[in-house]
Simulated scan of single mutants.
Amino acid sequence: MSRESVPGHDISYHLVCFDETGNERGHDSADVIRDARAGVTDVFFFVHGWNGDVPAARHHYGQWVATMAACRAEREAAHRLPGGFKSLLVGLHWPSKAWGDEDVRSEEFVRASAARLGGGAARTAAVRTIVEAALRHPCRMSPAVKEAYVYLEGSIPDLPGEDGTPFDPQQLYRACLEDPALGGILSPLRILTFWKMKRRARVFGESGAARIAREVAQAAPNARVHLMGHSFGCITATAMASVVPPATLTLVQGAMSLWSFAERLPGEPGAGYFRGVLGRVPGPIIVTTSTHDHAIGRFYPLAARSGRQLDLDEYPKYGGIGAHGVQGTYAHGHRVGAVGELTRGQVHNVDCSSVIRRVDGIAGAHNDICHPELARVLWRAVLSR
């Protein structure tokens, strides 16, 4: 059974796991489809972000569902809606462990890091060169380390820079040194895995995640589908929305470009990759931001632009929506706790710096999202029928 209980609440959710190619591990989606046929009115899909294994996904979803369930007034209002309210909650797990807390001195760290980049003897040897050099001289990038990085980048065909800029490990290293939290010659290794997970999030959203959403929509054709993503999970949720139009879309501290929905890209031809999603979501599109999110505010621009930051007026060309909100298209601005009217079918950037603020290591407050103030914003979107 895929059903997971939520401690302290009479509520549960389904956890469905997928592999790195977007194929389901097991047959837990059958439980979801069966429950979808039981007269549900609203289906919620939750998608976690980077660095999430199965235990982390359980913890993340359990906390978030509990936070939503604790909004008693909003739950009661939902049950008073015409037609009532019967929800189906689904958490999707995808392998997003980009880098972990393994002991960098261990062979396991070397093998795991190489595996995240595609594996193989040559990639493993390149990673070992980098790691051994980091242990000897963490603040010096030798020619051998640069050569190892260039080999890794060139050997992985699905890791292009966002603008085609050649990968430059020395430049990335110098850029990371400007922020002590990001420094060290292992920083480019983190950025290589960042690119890998970013692409995987989109592929998963367009494949396995979209498939289960489509099957649920077919099993419950009158139910409203709500998509919520966190971090790279925002890419997955938005990719799902491009395939299966949802009633609402909520993007929490998104690790995706602030120009994703733009009518025109700054300094480049064409529109944002997900521009077509606008108009497919009849309800509000909620986007949260926080100045305390260091993963998006500091690391994302470095990784997305290969270390080169280009400012365009007020907003950086290579920033993330978790720091700057959606730009390049009309969007309403709000502050959490004082959110105005949520206009259906439009983007709402919600500054959550007052609640998403607990700093935890290099990511800052990136994972500090389980707050009633934020849950109430999602409930308001759900209730805006």
Rank of each mutant, 00 (worst) to 15 (best):
G283Y: 06
T250A: 15
V252L: 14
G270E: 09
I235T: 10
L249V: 08
L249P: 03
L278T: 06
V216C: 04
S242K: 03
L278W: 04
G272P: 03
V281L: 10
R275A: 14
T238E: 10
Y273N: 02
A262D: 04
R214H: 10
T236A: 15
S242E: 11
E263K: 15
S257N: 14
G229T: 08
L265T: 02
L251G: 07
M256S: 05
E215T: 00
H230M: 05
M256F: 06
M228T: 15
P284C: 10
A237G: 08
P282M: 10
G283I: 09
V243M: 12
A217G: 15
L278N: 07
P245Y: 01
R264E: 14
G254L: 04
L258P: 01
E268R: 15
V281Q: 07
G270H: 11
L265R: 06
A220T: 12
E215G: 04
T248H: 12
P266K: 02
A223Q: 13
R280C: 08
A217R: 14
L251C: 14
T236R: 05
R280L: 12
A223M: 12
Q218L: 12
W259G: 01
F232A: 08
S257T: 12
Y273F: 15
A220G: 10
A220V: 12
F274S: 10
G229C: 12
